[in-house]
Design a protein around this nucleic acid. Structure first.
Lengths: 200, 200
DNA sequence: GAAGCGCTAGGACGCCTGTCCTAGTTGCAG
DNA sequence: CTGCAACTAGGACAGGCGTCCTAGCGCTTC
């Protein structure tokens, strides 16, 4: 069973991944996925036993692509401070999608929570990936004691910005909020104690 | 047609309000609402022509109760600074529900966005209520120029805290994040320029 | 008592959902 | 060339959904 990117299975996962984000998990029907991929509806069950299994594969794909992205940032960015800033800028890089559909991680996690879906912890694992990675950056910056707290704060920033960007369809707000967090990082990274005069 | 709190119509709106929050709008069926209220399923259409009409009534009820809450805060709190802090503390006061289901405003707005539902702007109006109210507080504090920006930041804080509280089921994180925002307010309200030494 | 109205129960409807089945096609292995 | 496994198409299925209809209840007002 080849797992290449062009296989039918991979196409299903790709289409479902996007549709779960755009329309939500529950509102995405098999018919919609089938239409996107261009295959028959009944054909799914040769690749997945159930819709939940597709969800599992989608989350697994998101985990994998997130790991790849973080590894790329580890490789490309010169230091931990730049890496955190790279994360902060993600809400601008993906600004268009976020305005329309919110954060893929946050919205899926919340939907699964409301559905009482067993795959919820798996979805939270994507958050954990970011959390752990951010924490590692702050630790590398010598802020070991509060590293996890800072990581969660940066994560909370991204969720707040995404939710309001989606609600108000306001790109300028996101820019201001990103700048504010950059200024906060300036203070935090100066010494571990804030300094006066920064206009955050 | 009496509109009192005990009427069947009001009971339907109450039950739908809670269920839309707990299970999401789409995942909430007429059967579930009927069972909660204790009435027949087919009986709905004497009070509402469609599910969307129930949604409209639920959002209207939320707008009304939000206005009442803000008016109460205007009455009870001595000044605008205390009012903003009262808002900030809401993520702790409603901590249990937020951990389980997220923010009612943010999650509904996002769900309606993904569904492409026409009532989305109506749901955003609840956000606007908070935004306008917060802006008024900051204006009263003499921060007229940046009042809306500050209002949006406080709003973003609440959404970030709510989303992660729901994802990680972590109450201590919310407390830390609230304290951080209080410290930020301390700086902001000192003069409009931050002062040194505050451990935010 | 009669009439009328607000309200309700319960079921019928057409549609769409996730699931499952089966017959048929393709392509590789011997 | 044959056989087997992987894969696909298309439809059947049971159940749930929002919607709608109708018969009947209980209360008020002449």
């Amino acid at each position: 069973m080849a797992e290449g990117a062009g296989t039918t299975r991979a196409q299903i996962v790709d289409a479902a991944n996007r549709l779960f984000y755009v329309k939500g998990f529950e509102h995405t029907s098999f018919a919609a996925i089938a239409e996107t991929v261009g295959i028959s509806r009944g054909n799914f069950y040769h690749h997945f036993k159930s819709k939940d299994e597709i969800l599992g594969a989608v989350i697994e794909a998101r985990l994998q692509s997130t790991r790849a992205m973080l590894a790329e940032w580890d490789r490309d960015e010169p230091g931990p401070a730049e890496r955190v800033r790279r994360f902060v800028e993600i809400v601008i890089a993906n600004g268009a999608d976020i305005q329309d559909f919110g954060c893929p991680v946050g919205t899926l996690t919340n939907e699964l929570a409301k559905l009482g879906h067993p795959a919820r912890p798996q979805a939270v694992a994507v958050f954990d990936l970011f959390r752990t990675w951010l924490r590692a950056q702050f630790e590398e910056l010598g802020l070991a004691v509060e590293a996890d707290d800072l990581a969660m704060h940066v994560l909370a920033f991204s969720q707040g910005a995404a939710t309001l960007s989606n609600a108000f369809h306001d790109g300028e707000f996101v820019r201001r909020e990103v700048d504010r967090l950059h200024a906060w990082l300036d203070e935090r990274l100066a010494h571990g104690r804030p300094i006066a005069g920064s206009a955050h």
